[in-house]
Simulated scan of single mutants.
Amino acid sequence: TLELAIVALLMALAIGGTTAIIGARERGTAVEAGIDIASGAALSIPDFLWGLVLILLFGVLVPVFDISGRVSPQLDLPFVTQFYLFESIVRLRFDLTKDLLGHMLMPAVALALPLAAIISQLLKQSLKEVLDLDYVVLARVKGFSETQVILREALKNAALPTLTLVGVQFTFLIGGTVIVERLFSYEGLGNMAIDAVINRDLPLIQGIVLVFALLFVLINLTVDMMYALLNPRLRHG
């Protein structure tokens, strides 16, 4: 579950960050309007519905990705921990890495798209506010291109509010794996939680709830510490 959530988070940051930078650079144009429309559509569709759409498109109509399980059953798995993707990279078993990513891609994308839309909207708005500040105007006077101004001057300050949001949304992302894992028959805490409910396994349900609660607390604590570390106004009182 953590591997799936982390991969989905990285995808959301890549998609949302890229579209936010493009939208801020092309502010006031049809490109920004198109990004806003796409973000609104991505945000209005829940992750489990994205999962169904991806299964239909890339598992049934154009079957290019695996739609069930975490890894192909015929493969020999030398793993010691449940972090299969991390272990396959460390062991240089890139054949297993490819297979794991093939199974992980669609559930990760389903989880990532709504979060990417949130990141895109917030980061783009923060960038547009920062781009009007004096130090950014001075960077333009020095001859920096608009892309250089955004990446070198504006992004590091505009990203701080987004960092807090990402931490909060990451906890919701982990919670969202419950339905998505079931949808893709993906091995994880979410699938286990549904099986526990069906089987009325109360101790297992309590254990899973405690694990999710602990993850939420640790993630939010980590985000608060990172925010204090990255924000000089908090560091210097």
Results as ranks from 00 to 15, higher is better:
173 L>Q: 06
152 R>I: 03
186 Y>D: 10
137 V>T: 14
168 V>M: 09
205 I>S: 07
139 A>R: 00
204 L>W: 06
202 L>H: 10
141 V>Y: 11
153 E>F: 13
203 P>W: 14
202 L>K: 13
196 A>Y: 03
141 V>C: 06
164 T>W: 00
180 V>S: 05
138 L>Q: 13
210 L>H: 07
171 T>M: 02
161 P>I: 12
184 F>I: 10
197 V>C: 03
155 L>P: 00
178 V>Q: 03
204 L>A: 12
168 V>L: 13
190 G>M: 00
156 K>C: 04
201 D>H: 09
182 R>K: 14
212 F>P: 05
182 R>H: 12
194 I>C: 06
135 Y>L: 03
146 E>C: 00
212 F>Q: 08
144 F>N: 04
164 T>K: 10
153 E>R: 04
179 I>F: 13
163 L>V: 13
185 S>Y: 08
161 P>M: 13
169 Q>K: 07
198 I>E: 14
162 T>I: 03
138 L>F: 14
167 G>H: 01
174 I>V: 15
139 A>G: 09
196 A>K: 02
159 A>W: 04
188 G>P: 06
204 L>C: 09
139 A>T: 04
188 G>S: 08
161 P>L: 13
197 V>Q: 06
142 K>D: 15
176 G>W: 00
177 T>D: 04
182 R>G: 15
164 T>V: 10
176 G>D: 11
172 F>R: 09
184 F>A: 04
173 L>F: 02
209 V>P: 04
